[in-house]
Simulated scan of single mutants.
Amino acid sequence: MPTRWKPSVTVAAVIEREGRFLLVEEETPEGLRLNNPAGHLDPGESPLAGCVRETLEETAHPFQPTALVGVYLARFVREATGEDVTYLRFAFCGAVGAPEADRALDQGIVRTLWLTPDEVRASADRHRSPLLLRCMEDYLAGRRYPLDLVFTDPSVLAG
């Protein structure tokens, strides 16, 4: 029986304040890259809860999602290892609170940045994923979907 293909499920926060977007600069096998606050969905959590957790871990900012921006599928092959990974990303927009002063950023996160859309576009060669730009552009185009569009059955949370 052939191995079943399973994409990696990730969550991302598209956070805009006063015309700037909150990004993280992180260490990757390809060098320092920019990304939305994002990460893998953990067992036993909903995509919404995962996004709240990842944003806090990577930026030290509490995050309150208000809408789903979109669901995205992208494939990435690591140059160094040849690893072929497909990501299924749920991107949420919302508001952030003030950073928690004593909270350390997640391992591998070098710093957070607030960039204008033009600065994000101009740095495309440093993006960890093409989804960073696509999510921002979808947000700027006004794409917003109700949070209840992403349903998590209670059996997931009972784990």
Rank of each mutant, 00 (worst) to 15 (best):
R89D: 03
D84C: 05
N36K: 00
G108Q: 04
L34Y: 15
R126A: 12
E18I: 01
D84Y: 03
L32C: 06
P62C: 10
V14I: 14
A141D: 15
T112H: 04
G82P: 08
P7E: 14
G70I: 06
E137S: 04
A60S: 15
G82M: 11
E30R: 15
T81M: 07
I109F: 02
L41Q: 08
R134D: 10
R78G: 01
V96R: 01
E58D: 08
A12H: 00
G44N: 10
D102H: 13
D125V: 10
A13M: 05
T28I: 10
D84K: 02
F90Y: 15
R128N: 08
S8N: 09
G70W: 07
L34N: 04
A98H: 09
V9F: 12
R53W: 08
D106F: 11
V110Y: 03
R126M: 09
T59Q: 02
H40I: 12
A60M: 08
E30D: 15
C93R: 01
E79P: 02
P99E: 09
G31L: 10
C93E: 15
T81D: 07
A91H: 00
A141F: 01
P146I: 08
L48P: 00
E79R: 13
E30M: 10
T66K: 07
N36A: 12
G19V: 04
L73G: 01
A122Q: 05
F76R: 08
F63R: 11
L56Q: 02
V85H: 02
I109Y: 08
G82S: 06
R75W: 03
A60L: 10
D42N: 11
A13K: 02
F76L: 07
V11R: 00
N35K: 01
P37M: 08
T55A: 08
R121I: 14
E18R: 12
A80Q: 08
V11Y: 02
A80F: 04
